[in-house]
Nucleic acid binder design. Structure first.
Lengths: 235, 235
DNA sequence: ACCTGAACACCGTTCAAGT
DNA sequence: ACCTGAACACCGTTCAAGT
């Protein structure tokens, strides 16, 4: 049916009221589909059938939107029901693995985590649980404060390192295939380096480009948690 | 003197021939003055008295320019003259501290390091030295390959975490004053949190926002190097 | 209070045309 | 081979004007 004369033509979408929550959820949908760089004020506005200026009534800036997205996503991390003091180190690892998995599932959102200090409720809840775990493990407050930073940096950096290559994948291609392709290219490059200047790199080209993923993360996690535990004041 | 009739007006700068080296040095000058986000193709071209299209004869893309800048900057890292096997752990720390200092001195260039796999000659030279150190320390190749990644992530993440706040400082203001200001603001925020939901964060607000800097880095560095050394096959 | 269109001052990259 | 101007398809943010 055509629009009757004198009636304003309806927009294609019935106008849903804008809200911060709706904007954040829409932005995360764009993130998941195309990566963080595709999340622009203009793009999110377009997805909501409006112009970029309309978003500024609900979020202060693009950076603020990015932090809201991060906290929204970290709400997916399922924390253990309670601190089990006798296995605090294992729970420490579980929380770190869960955070890594959630961040990995949302493209390169970890870039935001490394770039900002935690202020959102979900982000703080994870920090609170980690502190409770270390307290239960007898870690002095000053050490716990340092440890929480270092552990967070490991998680973020690990996710970012992978997500960068994945984010470069042209849409349509299998990102993991592109990832392996890229690694293989690096290996050939390292193997072709002059062996007199770079004997160890050339000799270890295979190990340096081994399917990293979980192994690299577990290595850092294990060393860090053991190192933290060495500061325990009493068992 | 006015330009004689029929003579083309000279540009203000005598035209220096463009080259990759000149472009990279100019880009690093902009980085040092205003941070990585100010390094755009247009801005670098303007600094050289030309248009952005002219740069593409010497660098393939902005991302490639960023990686060239990173390697240029890492050329400032002074590596020890030789591997001293009996103190390989201490040398490992020295190289990490030197890398951190150089990256810190160039604003948020560490973002590029975390986002790319090392291919430049200076970057590779640092990696080669680290591998030689671990080899001297009896670390198995597979562990050394993991360790070099983890150590690099720690250095990059640590520098980035600081540089982000510093990069936000409006030009003209003292960045370290702004940095302390920002930390103090976070502390007040954490102290004002509901103590029933976040007892440990509220209770440890002071430790969590303590003047971080070197302490945090040395903490992570010490734990990682000790952890790596625990994999040594023979002394 | 919320939303909008238009504008401002920017981006990276391509390409045909010049030397 | 190198350089250029102009164009294309984008940015974040502000602001006066509308409802």
């Amino acid at each position: 049916m055509p629009t009757p004369p004198g009636r304003r033509p309806r927009r294609t979408e019935p106008r849903r009221a804008l809200s911060q929550g709706l904007i954040v959820r829409t932005a995360v949908a764009v993130l998941d589909a195309e990566g963080l760089d595709a999340v622009t004020m203009r793009r999110v506005a377009q997805e909501l059938g409006t112009g970029p200026a309309s978003l500024y009534a609900h979020v202060g800036s693009k950076d603020e939107l990015y932090e809201l997205m991060l906290d929204h996503v970290l709400g997916e991390v399922e924390l253990p029901a309670r601190v089990e003091p006798e296995r605090w180190q294992e729970q420490m690892k579980e929380v770190s693995r869960a955070s890594r998995a959630v961040l990995s599932a949302h493209r390169d959102i970890a870039r935001v985590s490394l770039a900002s200090l935690p202020t959102g409720p979900n982000t703080l809840a994870i920090g609170e649980f980690r502190l409770a775990l270390m307290r239960a493990g007898g870690i002095p407050p000053r050490v716990a404060a340092l440890a929480i930073d270092t552990l967070g940096m490991l998680v973020d950096a690990d996710v970012i390192e992978d997500s960068i290559i994945l984010a470069k994948t042209p849409p349509g291609e299998d990102p993991w295939r592109a990832f392996r392709e890229h690694i293989a290219e690096i290996r050939r490059y390292l193997e072709a380096l002059p062996p007199d200047r770079f004997p160890n790199i050339v000799g270890m080209a295979e190990e340096l480009t081994a399917e990293g993923g979980d192994g690299r993360f577990e290595f850092g996690l294990d060393i860090l948690v053991r190192g933290i535990a060495s500061y325990a004041e009493d068992g």
